Amino acid sequence: MINLGISLLVYTLMLLALNFGAGLPVLYSALLALLGFAGSFFLLSRRTSKQLTALMEGVQRDMQGGRTEKAIKALQSGYPLGKWQFFVKSQIEAQIGCLLYLKRDFAQAFDHLQKGFTRHWVAMAMLAICYMKRNNPEKMKASFEKAVAATKNESLPWALYAFCLDKVGERSKAIEILEKGIKKGAADDTLLANLGALQEGKKMKMKSYGDLWYQFHLEKQGTVIKQQTRAVQGRRKIVRR
């Protein structure tokens, strides 16, 4: 990456200048040059990080305004930043994959999610679901393992993992995953209730996660619409009172 290359060049030039130019011992020259390397790499990385942050803020505004296509194009314009810093391109790929997945463009989303940043748990969970839909349970599990590793104390990733395991017929494994999530500190009322449901041979209930759950498109659209309609009707009844 360019930031690393420039920093190594700074290190080399400082080492030569201090050792041969200033006549300092090699050890002292190397230590001082190392400080120059660390400082330059920090500053360059910070500059790239600020550029990426500014890009993501613009994307966020486009998403809030319902301009998904514009948001995707803006993210794609950030590809050159990937040449400067490690993991930048994979972060952009993860974001693009998530946006395409939200649009239900699962084929294109899959291509980007495969290249996504493994510490982006939402992207890894979406990738896992894509593998499930492609009848590849082993890769589904591998992707979910990355998702839960990225955020061990969050309830939803563990619940999603278990939900999909149950969906592919591995209920006992789903129970194990929920128990593991609880041990890792992700326990909440929903996770505990779902563990009890699976142990009793019942289906998991995920609607309490709200929009965070619905974004993964694991419920049929008709079901979601019915639930939203009931919620609206419920609010109307409350207003009438």
Rank of each mutant, 00 (worst) to 15 (best):
C164R: 04
L32G: 07
I238Q: 13
L113F: 07
V232F: 12
K205H: 10
S40G: 05
Q91E: 08
K202V: 02
A33F: 02
F41R: 13
Q228A: 15
T68S: 07
W84R: 13
I96W: 00
K173I: 08
L9A: 15
Y131M: 00
Q64I: 14
G97P: 04
I6V: 13
A187I: 04
V26C: 06
F37D: 03
A22R: 09
L99G: 09
A107F: 10
N19Y: 08
A128F: 01
G97C: 03
T12A: 15
S7F: 14
Q51Y: 02
I92R: 01
V88P: 00
Q233F: 13
K139R: 14
G23L: 02
P25F: 12
L99R: 02
K103V: 06
I238F: 11
M124C: 10
A54T: 11
K139Q: 15
K226E: 15
R61P: 05
E170H: 05
W158Y: 01
T53F: 15
A54R: 14
L4Y: 11
Y11C: 07
E200Y: 05
G66N: 05
R235V: 11
A128L: 03
M132H: 09
Y11M: 08
S49D: 12
L113E: 06
R104V: 07
E145H: 13
E69Q: 11
W84H: 13
S90H: 03
K180L: 07
S77K: 10
N135T: 12
G36C: 03
A186L: 03
